[in-house]
Nucleic acid binder design. Structure first.
Length: 261
DNA sequence: TTGATTGTTACCGG
DNA sequence: TCCGGTAACAATCA
């Protein structure tokens, strides 16, 4: 679930239901009691996403920092209260809604300095209007690491996860094993633009959708991916190669995505 | 019970 | 210094 679009969607949604409200913040399992007590009964001023990091800002200058990792989930419900699942780490309650944060890898309270440090170490987020893509291109064009690794490196550019990685590179006909330094400005611009467009659609539809043929448009659903988890290329029908980049499965059509060096 | 999974970081060796 | 590999952590489902 958690690629960048999930977090941005949550930020927009939670800002809508929580901003300017005094929140009840609790730690049902008691595993985040100190943090919860700092934030409890404070007014939420903003909810923002930076890459896959979610920040709830409060008027007392403290910020709740959430990262869902691979397994974390966010569950929003309308009041009245329901019993939290046993894996709920922190629960936020506003006037009409509650949000449970389930199994995050990061759940902590940051001060202003901590927030600055966090934002400083995250690369430009493809979904943020204030992102500077030049920073990412600069890093990519100086690296000999494969582009498939670089675009998913959140300190290079933020937001892309394992599914979008294979999908974007296939759509842009770029081989994931192409070294960063072999990626020209135009190729990078295509990657950045496609990432931004796809993740924005992901935010809207609350799903990873990278296929836009007539059939799926008419029906409103259909195949969601072009290449991820597939055995044959939808374009040339050839066999798709499956391998790993930094321990994560990657899919490539050697015919449609020729490698450049 | 085992394995797989839309993620990240600390640590270590080359 | 930089790069790649490995372990650790998280929750759920088939």
């Amino acid at each position: 679930m958690p690629e960048g679009h999930t977090i941005h969607r949550a930020a927009i949604d939670h800002h809508r239901i929580f901003a300017r409200q005094k929140l009840i913040v609790s730690s049902p399992q008691g595993r985040f009691s100190e943090g919860a007590s700092i934030l409890n009964e404070q007014i939420c001023s903003a909810v923002e996403a930076f890459g896959k990091h979610l920040l709830y800002k409060f008027n007392n200058e403290y910020t709740l920092h959430i990262h869902l990792g691979l397994f974390g989930r966010i569950r929003k419900q309308k009041l009245p209260l329901a019993e939290p699942k046993s894996s709920v780490r922190i629960r936020l309650i506003g006037k009409k809604h509650l949000v449970d944060i389930i199994g995050p890898t990061i759940c902590e309270v940051l001060d202003q300095k901590g927030v600055m440090a966090l934002i400083g170490r995250i690369g430009p987020d493809v979904l943020r209007p204030d992102a500077n893509p030049d920073f990412a291109f600069e890093k990519i064009s100086r690296s000999k690491a494969p582009i498939g690794r670089l675009i998913m490196d959140q300190s290079v550019m933020a937001g892309i996860g394992n599914i979008y990685r294979s999908e974007i590179l296939w759509r842009q006909a770029i081989h994931p094993e192409t070294p960063g330094k072999a990626i020209c400005q135009q190729a990078f611009d295509r990657i950045w633009g496609d990432a931004r467009a796809l993740l924005a659609i992901g935010v809207e539809r609350n799903a990873i959708v990278t296929v836009f043929d007539e059939q799926s448009a008419k029906r409103g659903y259909g195949e969601k991916y072009n290449i991820f988890g597939k055995t044959n290329c939808p374009n040339c029908k050839g066999e798709i190669r499956r391998f790993e980049i930094s321990g994560r499965r990657t899919f490539v059509c050697e015919t449609c995505q020729p490698i450049e060096t």
